[in-house]
Design a protein around this nucleic acid. Structure first.
Lengths: 163, 163
DNA sequence: GTATCAGGTAGGATCGATTCCTAACTGTCC
DNA sequence: GGACAGTTAGGAATCGATCCTACCTGATAC
């Protein structure tokens, strides 16, 4: 997705955010990818055009964009926070192998009914459906070591060794 | 929930886990609460009976229990990982104010159909629904500063009449 | 156009959760 | 009872994220 300079100005202005080269770079990089990048990925991306950008700026900016509702933070544990420039209603499919996050646009998931008891007087502001599994690339790697674990596979993610 | 010594032995043994006092303490503490505690909370709990238990042991044990499928790790970003001794299919309600996590048991949420395109050849192993909002205690604190941000209406859940 | 200044940036220090490393310890099985 | 792989403790190291501070600069008013 691309955003015109004018639309960019409007979005930033609406939330009282200054339009600096760093912010424009960070925001457009984020809106321009569907890869749900980490702050570090964005830092690297931004440094291609502005090598002296600091990590601090990326965190500060992402925080500001998040608070303004221009961007959302999606965390599934396991290391760094991920960010998503797509603010349209959508849910996520997460590969347990490579940890990639894919988008799913599905109207029916946007409207769910909770029958089971919510906590008393709980006000619902939103919800999110996460689908877990294995992408085409990872299913093969997994096919080898089959049967080692059976599981209510749902709801748990194997931690990846940090390298 | 409580677990007999015998059942405990069976569960540990099934996964080739040794039954040490530390592990028993950690596991029973986790199964005995519905508060989705952090590793640190568990460390404090365990140290009441075994003061010399190290943080490392808690992490190591939680990792082992998680990998064995006896426990699940539930992360919603914001600091420490949370753990859940409840392995029955259930979903979570998260208060954006105090960050508490409540359980929701709802059969209909366990069976969702994703119509929107999943990535090609993606194998689904599970899913989870997270409901966000504000608990009774936090809604008041929030009532003051109303209207500052409107949420993306997209993700909303219809609340069904409580039986 | 210039001044003004709150908001933004850089860079280093710090924090906090988690993992790594290593040596000592101990359930479990034979 | 002995052997040994799995565990534990404790400290060091790592890494993402935040804090602190001084400097800088868009945006607005003049």
């Amino acid at each position: 997705m691309t955003v015109t300079q004018e639309e960019l100005r409007r979005r930033f202005h609406r939330h009282g955010l200054r339009m600096t080269p760093q912010r424009v770079a960070i925001y457009t990089a984020l809106v321009g990818t569907s890869s749900h990048p980490t702050a570090e990925w964005l830092l690297t991306a931004v440094r291609r055009s502005r090598p002296r950008t600091s990590a601090n700026t990326v965190y500060y900016t992402l925080g500001a964009l998040r608070d303004a509702g221009l961007v959302q933070e999606v965390n599934y544990g396991h290391g760094s926070a991920r960010f998503d420039g797509n603010m349209d209603p959508h849910h996520h499919v997460i590969c347990r192998g490579c940890r990639r996050i894919f988008d799913v646009q599905d109207r029916t998931l946007d409207r769910l009914t909770v029958k089971g008891g919510l906590p008393r007087q709980f006000i619902v502001t939103g919800h999110r459906v996460e689908v877990y599994g294995y992408c085409a690339e990872c299913r093969e790697a997994r096919a080898g070591r089959r049967g080692a674990r059976r599981g209510p596979a749902l709801l748990y993610i194997q931690r990846q060794r940090r390298r």
